[in-house]
Design a protein around this nucleic acid. Structure first.
Lengths: 204, 204
DNA sequence: CAATGTGAACAGCTTCACAGCC
DNA sequence: GGCTGTGAAGCTGTTCACATTG
């Protein structure tokens, strides 16, 4: 395929494909056609073919996509072929839930540090991590962690984001219901549960 | 404005506008221009004007949008002008975090029931709700609840979704990392935290 | 023959430019 | 003068149709 800018929407679908291919692999299915995959994911077959073709020709005509190697290709495209360490800020109920979320491992994510500002939580253990004082976020610099998950109250979110960016964090998954002001080089994804729920009544 | 199909993307932004207008109201600001609002939300002014104009002419030329009445208009468009009762299924760590999430009230959501399948949790109180047995989901029929938040493990999600739909639920916010098969009349929104995180390394 | 890969047509959303109004 | 409301232009992403290949 000649040069094309890869649509953001395509990138957003890639983890979906990775999950699907990973599951197929555990089921020992060796190949899958765009048709079959589309049925599973409720997408259109040409969509899947076009998405994958942006990154190369992974499939075999007449056969479909080889499950195992395509999974590896996507993993490598998304840079998930190396274990990605992430820091969690906020050890409240939501933070604790996330720390124990089993779904991260499929994508190679590893919660490598946890911070909070509450003295009752600092020093406690969550999973394999000791909760550290949020004032020590700057020590992340030396630990080569680039991703952060922000699970703090909205009024603390911007301050934590600033500290994280100061400590070399390059990507933030923000779970607070607020907009974060960050330099352009930092990528932020905000998930606002109440806002997502907010559109449901309109549709029903 | 003549008839136009309202873009889904516009609907998705409406709760964002509602939140912004609600906050402005607490700050006693009486009007706001699309320019000012765009700066806050990091959008383009014409985007905001077009979005709002799909639903009517709320603004005043030369002045901007009246904060209070526009907030009410959006609330009414999104059907959030009446308190929306929702049921939470899953009283694990994530479910508990969600039950105590303070952000729902701004949109008029009220967690009116909680279900789980774990005998250790059934009968306990979370917030103002007693945790009920998931086998009793069918009793929702009589309670006039139309929205559900699904915070159960992926392998239980489809079963719970089926039971919820059976009990008259019309919209589901699915927090499990899986696709739900539902009739077309039911609206599902899936939030998959690991998948959202999965795109970050690509961008950094 | 079955299924991919892809240019081209199409659809949907965003941005622009400006007319209209306060 | 300032700002909304909106048709039209522009752009991005999706779908189609089919040539291509194992």
């Amino acid at each position: 395929m000649k040069y094309h800018k890869i649509p953001d929407e395509t990138i957003k679908r890639m983890p979906m494909y990775l999950r699907a291919f990973s599951i197929l692999k555990t089921q020992n299915q060796e190949t899958i056609s765009s048709q079959q995959l589309a049925e599973r994911l409720h997408l259109n077959p040409p969509q899947i073919r076009k998405d994958l073709s942006y990154f190369g020709a992974f499939g075999t005509r007449g056969i479909g996509y080889p499950v195992s190697s395509t999974a590896e290709q996507i993993r490598s495209i998304l840079k998930l072929d190396v274990s990605q360490q992430a820091v969690l800020v906020g050890a409240g109920r939501l933070g604790t839930a996330i720390a124990s979320y089993p779904g991260f491992s499929m994508f190679g994510f590893d919660i490598a540090a946890i911070f909070d500002n509450d003295n009752n939580k600092i020093g406690k253990t969550i999973g394999k991590n000791l909760v550290e004082n949020v004032a020590e976020i700057v020590t992340l610099k030396a630990r080569n962690i680039r991703l952060a998950i922000l699970a703090v109250p909205a009024n603390a979110a911007q301050g934590c984001a600033d500290a994280l960016i100061d400590a070399g964090i390059k990507g933030i998954l923000n779970l607070s219901p607020c907009y974060l002001n960050v330099p352009k080089r930092v990528k932020v994804i905000t998930i606002d549960i109440a806002m997502e729920l907010g559109i449901l009544p309109y549709y029903i």
